[in-house]
Design a protein around this nucleic acid. Structure first.
Lengths: 345, 345
DNA sequence: CTGAAAGCGCTTACAG
DNA sequence: CTGAAAGCGCTTACAG
């Protein structure tokens, strides 16, 4: 069952293939009458442009890919939703490529993924956005990308959220609830966002003229298990904190588990808070107070940036101006739920 | 920066393009010496076959897509993992297409997705595998697909799990724990798997010579919220059940929330069990007893089936034998965790 | 065992 | 405003 091609349409409409091409690409300079004739032929024959033909001729695939290795399924899902929306609007396909950040051959794997799919551009979710060898390879191959939550903001487009402010706001809220011993669980040390969160935590204390108890800051890795472990450390103290603020939801859920399995009542005996607002946080009991990370908007924006850059890149010689780097920073809103309450020590 | 093509390799090796093509496709009938010469040229020039050229010439894209609209992120993630593994092995790309099952234009949306990407084949996750209009369209377009958890097993390939047995085993286990009033939350009425689970539940009672209390069976929709709602119904009874068995994890987590928010202690006052074993079940406290649904294996198998069928389809005329439909049914294992205990009414 | 020609479905570059 | 020719990078069908 051969499908109908541009050639069939041309024949049917009595014009050249080029003219059909003009019509389907909505180019100017086609007589209305001709355009209509062609359009009728298209409708009549049920013609649909074969993207592969176009891809080969234009030397671009019209696919982009989301590269991810993130311990939080909800994080990726939300991001993905926004990216898909952006891509659908622009008729771009989205590949999902799940990689293992720790793989020693990560960069080669991704390179061969690109060679195999010819993806036009990439969206890099953390922690991949923090991997400079990867960025080097992409630059060398001249592949466009946009980073989410980037460390290296000197190159390429990026979109992120204001992590300092997010952590600041949450810490301030906890302080406002009269908590003073607030355990803080860091994210992965390799990730830029993690450092930014720590900064926000410290700033909130400073602004409240309070001193940070360094022993209350413990290392995590953004995974559920690291939340469990960090909570154990914090809860094993002679004077456990009255609140624990985890840098992401997954860890907060781990904290919740640890507390509950020890018979500690949340929020009565321990308040728990986090950043992200992924779906899991409204599924556990009690629902967790968190900062709403607008991941869907971020994904949408990232897709928009990437597609814009791709368009510009292929506009080519006629506009040799290099468009400046695009970036946008989103803010997170505090969402108060059941896991935090006033300190009544 | 033009990349190196088959033509460059041919020139460099002093052979025809066709011979290069033979080498990269590992065809027989090439003199060893020639093959080596070509291979050297390939290595020397760093040639990599452009998949778009191949796709156009072969009239297939070497992409498949996973179509999903499933309320459980963990379910899709696990499935995806297996599919990607299978596709990576066979050098196929994977698209993810998130659709809305309830959309009135679902079938058209998917059709235009296929037209836009030229995906060679589709993997249909529930509930899409239960949508016969969709299957009709796919058949009409002659697109290969494999269904996961299919209702209509008379057409196409499928892979699923033995839902009757899974529900039977879990119910039996609960019965073994001396529970008699076991609330059962059904899945979505449109989904075949849901009916199968109900069957298993009933069979376990029958085999134990026990009568099912019909009022203990309540409708759910596989979503978290439907689990919350169903649990309310069950827990509002004058004589609430001592155990609740939900047809999937998401609903079980909803049950857990409802119980805990009412101060009901799990498992002391209420045992909770489910089917799937998605990640969330080991994140909540207490961890939920569930049947391990081997979704990653299922995804892998589905990819394998689909790729096999695609290969066969394109082998074409020479082997006009129609390979029979492929299918496989996996079994689930009982995983006992913290949410179930002996009934001591 | 190897190659020249034609073709996949589209676009680019040019001419008129 | 429109079209003929050549090309994108590969494969198929055929010939030898």
């Amino acid at each position: 069952m051969r499908s109908v091609t541009i050639k069939d349409v041309a024949l049917h409409a009595g014009v050249s293939k080029k003219t059909v091409s003009r019509v389907i690409n909505k180019e100017a300079n086609v007589k209305d009458e001709t355009r209509q004739k062609v359009q009728e032929a298209i409708d009549h024959l049920g013609f649909k442009r074969n993207p592969l033909g176009m891809a080969l001729a234009k030397n671009r695939s019209f696919f982009i890919a989301l590269l991810a290795d993130n311990p939080s399924p909800g994080y990726i899902m939300n991001l993905q939703k926004g990216i898909m929306k952006g891509c659908r609007e622009e008729q771009m396909g989205v590949f999902l490529y799940d990689c293992s950040y720790r793989s020693p051959t990560l960069v080669e794997e991704i390179e061969s993924f690109i060679d195999n799919t010819l993806a036009d551009g990439l969206i890099l979710a953390p922690p991949l956005s923090d991997k400079s060898e990867l960025l080097d390879m992409l630059d060398r191959k001249n592949i466009s990308y946009v980073q989410i939550g980037a460390k290296d903001k000197t190159r390429g487009d990026f979109v992120d959220m204001d992590a300092v402010k997010a952590a600041y706001d949450m810490t301030s809220y906890l302080l406002h609830l009269k908590h003073r011993d607030i355990g803080f669980i860091l994210g992965h040390p390799d990730q830029y966002t993690s450092q930014r969160c720590e900064q926000g935590y410290r700033m909130a204390f400073a602004d409240a003229n309070l001193k940070v108890d360094e022993s209350l800051i413990v290392q995590g890795y953004y995974t559920y298990q690291s939340g469990v472990d960090a909570a154990s450390v914090l809860l094993n103290r002679n004077t456990p904190p009255s609140a624990i603020f985890a840098s992401n939801d997954e860890m907060a859920v781990g904290v919740l588990y640890t507390a509950q399995s020890r018979g500690i009542s949340v929020p009565k005996q321990l308040s728990i808070a986090s950043i992200d607002d992924t779906p899991i946080v409204t599924k556990v009991w009690p629902n967790i107070t968190t900062m709403r990370h607008p991941l869907t908007s971020i994904g949408y924006r990232a897709a928009t940036f990437l597609i814009g850059r791709l368009k510009h890149k292929h506009a080519g010689a006629n506009s040799s101006v290099n468009i400046s780097e695009s970036n946008e920073t989103f803010h997170c809103d505090l969402v108060i739920r059941e896991s935090t309450t006033l300190f009544t020590g």
